[in-house]
Write a protein that binds this DNA or RNA. Structure first.
Length: 469
DNA sequence: CAACAAAGCGCG
DNA sequence: AAAGCGCGCTTTGTTG
């Protein structure tokens, strides 16, 4: 149960609800011709690739085994069947089981993609296209109204942390990380006129900055304020025993996404170590001076990942053992105030049974430790963008602008920018997000920065790129 | 047949 | 002692 406890909280959600209703009403313009063509094209590709699973030379052996076991019931879309074929019939090593009561083999992408079996890679490609086709292309097409517009619901009073969500369709999870997927889906969203532009304005590092406002950790604040510092680079240097200069772009990326953020959200050295170790091979990481990362680690005495049983004590010379020390440095030395804040808020929750947010809400649900330390940060970070949305929308109305806010994605706003209004939108949104926000909420103790991406006039969301003024 | 759980995958 | 937070949507497989 989460509810506003201050006038400010009530007001934010009252006005937010009205502002989002207008966003829904504005709607997103969809290129249905593109969509229909792409659906047909993707249907065809899926048919061809699926046929390949049955007929290609390098797939025959697996398909034969499948047919033998399941006969008429053969379904190449069934992951339960796939798991049984791979790990029961073909006896491939390294399978792991799901945790449910009725356990089966894990067959997610992570468990499959390192396997040296053409069938598996083609299977994953088919599944990816199916996802693109059913959830996105067809799912979006189904919701387009008679005028070619999408009006997703932006739900405010639904999410446990008082974030928003989007449904019918969900427009907050359109593919972007995988370039192939992004190129299939995102071109369908266009501005509503050839002279207008799609834009996306986002708050940089919204959750990390919000976390800093809660815990007031000196090191974290310095990392945010001082452009010469970089916590992902420094953590990468610790984790892989490198000099800062040796941290390459990809090594930093792995430290950020497999170590720093997971640890902030409550992960631990064991899982971080495993995921980082996998990434070294998958991304073929090399140091900035060109040494393969595994080789570098060997020269520092780390020769293997270590025992995969989390209950055994890590052995010196393993990466897991090393990461245990890195985790200790991370929480007890580098971010010790953040760590202390996590314990403080958890203890307070245990005493009182609730968590209050800086934005005026109280959460009195049953939470575990990770939830208690994450909810207020996630919710408040969203409230930064919600407050900005309300203000920007009001100002654009005041100036009788034709730019419309058409969507909202946790820390960003999606806009359909009117002809010759790009600069005005930039100036209004920039002032609201980086100045007015700080005047409204005195607890914001770090600078807030925002970024604008736009596509050229008439071009789709897929064409967006960063723009500076 | 509908309703449900589990697994999986997309995003911040 | 526990072991990454929050969502929505789709399919498969089970249950009654």
């Amino acid at each position: 149960m989460i509810t506003p406890i201050t006038t400010e909280g009530y007001k934010l959600f009252l006005e937010g609800q009205i502002a989002l209703a207008e966003v829904e009403h504005n709607g997103m313009c969809i290129d249905t011709v593109y969509l229909d063509n792409k659906i047909e094209e993707t249907d065809k590709r899926i048919r061809e690739l699926s046929a390949g699973l049955r007929k290609d030379k390098d797939c025959r052996q697996v398909f034969k085994a499948w047919k033998k076991k399941y006969g008429e019931k053969t379904n190449l879309g069934s992951r339960e069947q796939l798991g049984s074929i791979l790990f029961d019939v073909l006896k491939i090593e390294g399978g792991s089981s799901t945790g449910a009561a009725k356990a089966r083999w894990r067959t997610d992408k992570d468990a499959l993609e390192d396997m040296d079996l053409p069938f598996v890679h083609k299977f994953l490609e088919v599944e990816k296209l199916k996802k693109a086709n059913t959830t996105y292309l067809k799912g979006i097409r189904r919701e387009v109204d008679s005028k070619g517009f999408l009006h997703p619901s932006f739900n405010l009073n639904l999410v446990a942390t008082f974030r928003s969500s989007s449904s019918s369709p969900n427009t907050q999870n359109w593919p972007i990380r995988d370039p192939e997927m992004a190129a299939i889906i995102r071109p369908c969203m266009k501005p509503r006129h050839k002279d207008r532009q799609i834009g996306e304005k986002d708050l940089s590092g919204a959750e990390v900055r919000t976390a800093a406002c809660y815990c007031k950790d000196k090191a974290l604040i310095t990392y945010i304020c001082n452009k010469n510092t970089d916590m992902h680079r420094d953590t990468a240097a610790d984790a892989f025993i490198l000099k800062k200069k040796q941290v390459s772009k990809n090594i930093r990326y792995v430290a950020k996404n497999k170590c720093v953020f997971p640890m902030f959200y409550g992960s631990w050295y064991f899982d971080c170590a495993k995921n980082m170790w996998i990434s070294i091979d998958r991304m073929q990481l090399t140091t900035e001076d060109g040494i393969p990362l595994k080789k570098h680690l060997q020269s520092k005495g780390i020769t293997s990942l270590g025992d995969l049983n989390p209950n055994t004590e890590p052995v010196p010379g393993t990466f897991i053992h090393h990461m245990k020390k890195v985790e200790h440095t991370f929480w007890k030395v580098r971010f010790k105030q953040y760590d202390q804040w996590k314990w403080d808020i958890w203890n307070k929750y245990c005493e009182t049974g609730y968590i209050d947010t800086l934005t005026g809400f109280r959460c009195s649900a049953i939470m575990d430790r990770k939830q208690a330390t994450n909810y207020s940060i996630q919710g408040s970070a969203f409230h930064l963008i919600l407050w900005s949305l309300i203000k920007i929308q009001k100002q654009m109305k005041k100036y009788k602008m034709r730019t419309k806010i058409i969507g909202q994605i946790h820390d960003s706003l999606l806009v359909d920018i009117g002809k010759n209004e790009l600069r005005d939108f930039h100036e209004i949104s920039e002032k609201v997000m980086t100045q007015d926000l700080l005047k409204h909420w005195k607890w914001i103790c770090v600078p807030i920065e925002a970024e604008l991406e736009v596509a050229a006039a008439g071009k789709s969301w897929h064409e967006k790129h960063k723009i500076e003024f």
